[in-house]
């Protein structure tokens, strides 16, 4: 039973992850300023990679291999949060104004 539905769950998780990657890329191309682009980047980083790793961990041969895959995720989360903080703070320090409705 588990062997029967596990590939489907895994495939669905992979597709959801790919969707978040595509959404992050689209947002990075279309959003108006640095802060909102950081938001789009964080979606691709955290949710896209998270779902892909979860989907692959379900296919892994052993528990250890699956856990190792899942351990990449907290690392990517911490790295993404640190980089986003550094870039947003630097943008604020340089005087980049957040985009408002109606501004070009």
């Amino acid at each position: 039973m588990t062997e029967l539905i596990m590939p489907w769950i895994s495939g669905a998780l992979l597709i959801v992850g790919a969707f978040f990657y595509a959404a992050g890329t689209l947002g990075l191309l279309r959003f108006p300023d640095v802060y909102s682009r950081l938001h789009a980047l964080a979606k691709a980083d955290n949710l896209g990679l998270g779902f892909v790793l979860l989907g692959l961990a379900l296919q892994a041969e052993s528990v250890a291999a699956g856990l190792k895959l899942l351990l990449i995720w907290p690392l990517a989360l911490a790295a993404s949060a640190g980089v986003s903080y550094a870039i947003a703070r630097r943008a604020d320090r340089l005087g980049v104004k957040p985009w408002r409705k109606g501004s070009p």
Partner: peptide, 21 residues
């Protein structure tokens, strides 16, 4: 230049996903 750097960061995260797959 910030946008181009964000692209480089996106490459990093997408590349991680591709490598795992």
């Amino acid at each position: 230049s910030a946008d181009r750097m964000l692209m480089a960061l996106l490459f990093g995260s997408t590349g991680t996903g591709i490598l795992v797959l």
